[in-house]
Design a protein around this nucleic acid. Structure first.
Lengths: 98, 98
DNA sequence: CGGAATCCTTCTCGATACTG
DNA sequence: CAGTATCGAGAAGGATTCCG
């Protein structure tokens, strides 16, 4: 892992997000990896995929209740990471230059 | 991931653990993987490796202050996983049998 | 005891091309 | 637009052997 701090931010607080919105919101992710990740989250019951058979097609993703309940549970850890990441990077530099 | 619930438990509340104690406490881990994982945690500044040049050699691992501070931050997420894991497994089964 | 080194197989993932 | 299919390089990781 290089930088754990790419949370899909700046996307407002809407509850449905299109594939392209997610892709644009997560820097550096490839289409393939986003597709696979969304499939796994769907398989785990953490999100629901809404497919609209229009032209062009539209797909919107939405957290399930369980998926939404995970966010606050994860919050403590993510904030710990945000606070300690610089220090971890320092430790790595020091460890590597020895 | 298959079962996220192997926390090294039943090892008491000592603050120093030997390599073999960790290995025995984490079911299914290989020597190689434990070594690599401990090296990475040490590199990140999350634990300290104490080497005692005896015969036979003894190595003890101990969390740093930062490492110890991560545990409570992680607690919310791990307890969420323990609570929701059965449901996630159900969802996976249902998804896979379609 | 606690590794390091090596081999070898499997998995991961990006890149690319194609499609309903 | 939101995928699927395929290929190939590289990483991950188990098994085994050797070592201070």
């Amino acid at each position: 892992m290089d930088d754990p701090c790419h949370v899909a931010s700046g996307l407002g607080d809407r509850h449905q997000l299109r594939f392209s919105e997610l892709k644009n919101g997560i820097e550096g992710i490839t289409q393939r990896m986003l597709t696979l990740t969304l499939r796994n989250l769907e398989r785990d019951g953490l999100l629901i995929r809404h497919y609209f058979p229009e032209v062009p097609p539209r797909v919107e993703y939405q957290l399930t209740e369980m998926g939404a309940s995970m966010l606050p549970a994860l919050e403590g850890f993510t904030s710990w990471i945000r606070q300690n990441w610089p220090r971890i990077e320092e430790c790595r530099k020091r460890y590597d230059s020895r």
